[in-house]
């Protein structure tokens, strides 16, 4: 099985749109993993049928046992996050503010506070309207991402691919260059970078390249909206050439790109043959990268 991860650094470069389109071209040859869990959007284009859903637990949450609580207020005095309120004579945990540090639980003289696993979201195995399998996740309101959910989604997608002998795993990577991105790097065969012709796009491309070189991973690059700022686009091309990262395509700022998305479709479903053939070219390249 070949694992290809699609990364961008900053948001808004079109990473998810490209991942979705490549997944459609790959069809039943690929499983798509949506590891962009902060902005998990792939399912909006795939409108998948959910086959399995699982709870995702992360971090802890304090829970007061009112049968033994003596209303002494030690917990509230010691809470550094102002997460315990006194409401109608009872001490109540504010679940949004509680950081799960467990200080209240350690200091409660009656041992009335227990730390419970925090429900942070859900993860799913689904089948898209094209028949492509996908693994994706959803974080609850107010929950933060960490490398943990990224690892989970990817590992589950891998298991599924192995079990069903599916030759490709396409991973929509998390944004940025931090811990979740490193989690997404584990075990990849090829990194496809989607960048855009802006200063911040180039800045993030450079940081991603450092990681790619460190992990000795193979990579290629697509410059989206290259005509927004052609001098920067040129600088990006030169940079990629200097780092043995082939620039597969330069995509112009295109109304149809956007219109297709507005209609909840992937860009290979658009009428724009030019755009479609560029994506097909990218997929042909990825299909033949060495594992």
């Amino acid at each position: 099985m070949k694992e290809i991860v699609i990364m961008s650094g900053k948001g808004g470069t079109g990473k998810t749109s490209f991942t979705a389109a490549l997944g459609v071209l790959a069809g039943k040859q690929a499983i798509v993993a949506d590891c962009d869990v902060d902005a998990a959007n792939l399912h909006l284009l795939y409108q998948p049928e959910i086959l399995e859903d699982h709870n995702f637990l992360s971090g802890k949450l304090a829970v007061i046992d009112y049968d033994t609580c003596i209303d002494c207020g030690v917990c509230r005095d010691k809470c550094a996050f102002d997460a315990i309120d006194l409401t109608d004579g009872k001490y109540v945990i504010n679940e949004i503010s509680c950081e799960g540090c467990a200080v209240c639980s350690y200091l409660c003289p009656e041992h009335s506070i227990e730390m419970k696993d925090n429900h942070a979201g859900k993860w799913f195995i689904s089948k898209s309207r094209f028949g492509t399998w996908m693994v994706h996740a959803h974080l609850d309101i107010g929950q933060d991402n960490s490398g943990k959910l990224v690892s989970k989604v990817k590992d589950e997608a891998k298991k599924l691919a192995k079990k069903n002998e599916i030759p490709f795993l396409l991973v929509d990577g998390p944004p940025g260059v931090g811990c979740p991105v490193i989690s997404a790097f584990a075990g990849v065969d090829h990194v496809l970078i989607i960048t855009e012709a802006t200063q911040s796009g180039f800045h993030d491309l450079k940081r991603l390249t450092e990681l790619i070189e460190f992990f000795k991973a193979q990579a290629s690059c697509v410059i989206n909206k290259y005509d927004l700022n052609e001098p920067i686009s040129g600088t990006i091309e030169e940079f990629c050439n200097g780092h043995s990262i082939p620039v597969l395509e330069k995509i112009p700022f295109d109304e149809t790109f956007y219109e297709t998305l507005q209609n909840g479709k992937t860009i290979v479903e658009s009428e724009n043959k030019n755009l479609k053939s560029k994506i097909e070219h990218i997929w042909q390249f990825l299909k033949n990268v060495e594992g």
Partner: peptide, 19 residues
Amino acid sequence: EPTPFGLHDLDLMVQTINQ
């Protein structure tokens, strides 16, 4: 923005602000 992405994220935001 008027895309399914924008709508999805707007809905999450509305749920947050309603709190």
